[in-house]
């Protein structure tokens, strides 16, 4: 009985699954626009959600607007807050820019004076000496310390070069992993387990840190997952992120629709968006591409290369007025009845 019932829901041959997936995501998406207004004005630290996040995923943006990683810890650190904090400190990315209160170049002497912010130093638990040492190593320059003021000697009086050093100083990572962002220890209230969330997606860098559980590391950055774990993982990540975003808005879309989208995006072996630069732009049919965006460009290129449209897709057949090869249109007469007698068994 159950088997009978379940076979009723099997996808039939010729069923337009892509169109159904698109409609199943698209229709709730229209409700989302209205709802996302409710979240306006909340702290910017919260990850992008709602429609902008869906668009970001489906367009296969190289970097999410708000990258976020969840780093689980090994057996020892996940039970001890102090150990967890130590791991977090190793990950937590501190850039010079956040520590600096004021920075002044002296072009005549070729020196740069940096006033550090006491508040920021305290919150990152660092001394000016540590900052100076790290900075000196990074720049291979001499850095003098006097109270909260660092003085960098640049060995040049060239205006442009001094400026370049200043920019370099502001961007330099004083501690933690580059691209890891701010890392904070969190506690799972159910299991009592400690874990770390960070506002960056450099999971490649984080994998090298001791004390983390490498098998459970996760990020919302699809491309970071693709680089580290490969295309299958990226496919799962896309579907999972889509589902999480929809769940957040209390919209229920069947996972299989999302998996189909993720499959389509990753079928070529690399992550591709669905738009003009991705799936739609790579359609075989000239007419289908021309019907979407940049009509003239596609027509002229097709002419230049003498392309032939095989008329196998949906768009191009609607355009000329033929039956579309979907559903009832996907069957064709193989042999006429009167010709059957000619066939010898």
């Amino acid at each position: 009985m159950a088997k009978e019932k379940s076979s009723d829901f099997k996808v039939e041959f010729g069923e337009p699954v892509g169109m159904i997936a698109a409609q199943s995501v698209g229709e709730p998406g229209t409700q989302m626009i209205l709802r996302s207004f409710h979240f306006a004005g909340i702290e910017s630290a919260i990850a992008t959600s709602g429609l902008p996040r869906i668009v970001e995923l489906v367009d296969a943006k190289k970097r999410p607007t708000t990258p976020l990683s969840t780093i689980y810890l090994d057996a020892k650190a996940s039970r001890n807050i102090d150990d967890a904090e130590k791991v977090a400190a190793k990950i937590n990315e501190v850039r010079m820019g956040t520590l600096v209160r004021r920075i002044i170049e002296n072009f005549a002497k070729g020196t740069i004076k940096i006033a550090l912010s006491r508040q920021e130093l305290e919150s990152e638990d660092m001394t000016p000496r540590q900052v100076a040492d790290r900075l000196g190593k990074l720049l291979s320059l001499e850095v003098a310390v006097e109270g909260l003021v660092l003085t960098v000697k640049t060995h040049t009086k060239n205006l442009k070069e001094v400026r370049a050093v200043r920019v370099k100083i502001m961007r330099s990572v004083i501690s933690g992993i580059e691209g890891a962002g701010k890392a904070i220890v969190q506690k799972n209230l159910k299991t009592g387990e400690f874990y770390i969330i960070s506002a960056g997606s450099n999971i490649e860098g984080m994998m090298g840190i001791e004390g983390i559980d490498k098998s459970r590391i996760y990020t919302n950055d699809v491309f970071a997952i693709y680089r580290l774990f490969g295309i299958e993982a990226a496919r799962n990540a896309i579907a999972r992120e889509l589902q999480l975003t929809l769940d957040e808005q209390k919209i229920s879309v069947d996972l299989r629709h999302l998996l189909l989208i993720a499959d389509a995006m990753t079928a070529s072996g690399s992550v591709k968006g669905v738009g003009r630069h991705g799936l739609s732009g790579e359609k075989k049919s000239v007419f289908a591409r021309a019907a979407y965006e940049e009509t003239v460009k596609h027509l002229i290129n097709a002419a230049a290369f003498g392309e032939t449209d095989q008329m196998r897709g949906v768009t191009e057949n609607i355009l000329v007025g033929k039956q579309i090869p979907i559903g009832t249109g996907s069957v064709r007469l193989a042999i006429k009845k009167e010709d059957m007698s000619k066939v010898k068994p």
Partner: peptide
């Protein structure tokens, strides 16, 4: 799109 979703290709051809 709705007609494509149903796979009603002959109805679609009639309309369009």
């Amino acid at each position: 799109d709705a007609l494509i979703g149903y796979g009603a290709s002959l109805l679609l051809k009639e309309r369009l």
